[in-house]
Design a protein around this nucleic acid. Structure first.
Lengths: 132, 132
DNA sequence: TTAAACAGTGAAAATGGTTGTCAATAACAA
DNA sequence: TTGTTATTGACAACCATTTTCACTGTTTAA
């Protein structure tokens, strides 16, 4: 089963890998694996909450390990619309999360939603792309 | 030119239309239009900032009119992962935006980004989907 | 032990939103 | 008119993802 292999690959990087990125890395140590299984495994990992699936607008889904039990590694994203580079930032998170929690409660009540997740992303141009 | 037609369609709804949704609606009053032109026009409108492009995870891009000059209609999204229903909420926005602005400044400085945009979405289950 | 039911797998084909190509036409300039 | 350029839509190509399906190994039941 490739579950372990996929989790290993994801735990070794800060990058946001696409399904094919993951496939290629797993393939190195486990050449029998097929792309289909990668998709299947990712789908399953996302469903049980071990992996997050993101869409940064470049036409392919990207994956990252969900943070541990205490939410230690929680972060948000800063996306360069020029080159696609993504920064995981962990500053400001505390304030953001506090506000989000408050907002979440208000929204839950008003719109009768059971909120399970949130997404915060900033878009802009990184230093390099700004100079072009 | 379909620019006006596309903007008209978008200004008449609170929904988040896909390219094909827009195509069908424009087609009613402008049957000569082709889907290619819709994509081209949307691309252009997104580039000049008149339209926002979103991805809510259902495999197709969705579009909405950018808010007016004073940002009067600014809102964030509440997405039901069960049925895909999207709520535009305008409550809590003031606090959120204030914090975002502050965060934006910090991130800009620290990571040397020229931030142009942000995205906030909450995910969960709407009342109907929760009962299933 | 044997056979049937079942779960897991990868290759290949299918799907479907989006993009690219290209010829036709319109708009404009010389 | 003639040449140049910009817009357009039909259609083909693209490509990430999903579906199908045959094949395998494993468990279950008798």
């Amino acid at each position: 089963m490739g579950r372990e292999a996929v989790l290993d690959v994801l735990s070794l990087t800060e990058d946001h890998l696409s399904a094919e990125d993951i496939y290629m890395r797993v393939h190195e140590t486990y050449p029998a694996i097929g792309l289909t299984s990668i998709y299947r495994t990712l789908d399953m990992l996302v469903n049980i909450g071990l992996v997050y699936k993101f869409d940064f607008g470049d036409g392919r889904a990207r994956f990252e390990l969900a943070e541990g039990p205490k939410g230690k590694d929680h972060h948000h994203h800063l996306v360069c619309t020029g080159c696609g580079h993504i920064v995981n930032y962990r500053d400001f998170i505390d304030e953001e999360v506090a506000l989000l929690k408050k907002t979440e409660e208000g929204l839950s009540k008003k719109y009768n939603f059971a909120i399970t997740n949130h997404l915060i992303q900033f878009y802009g141009l990184c230093e390099t792309c700004r100079k072009k």
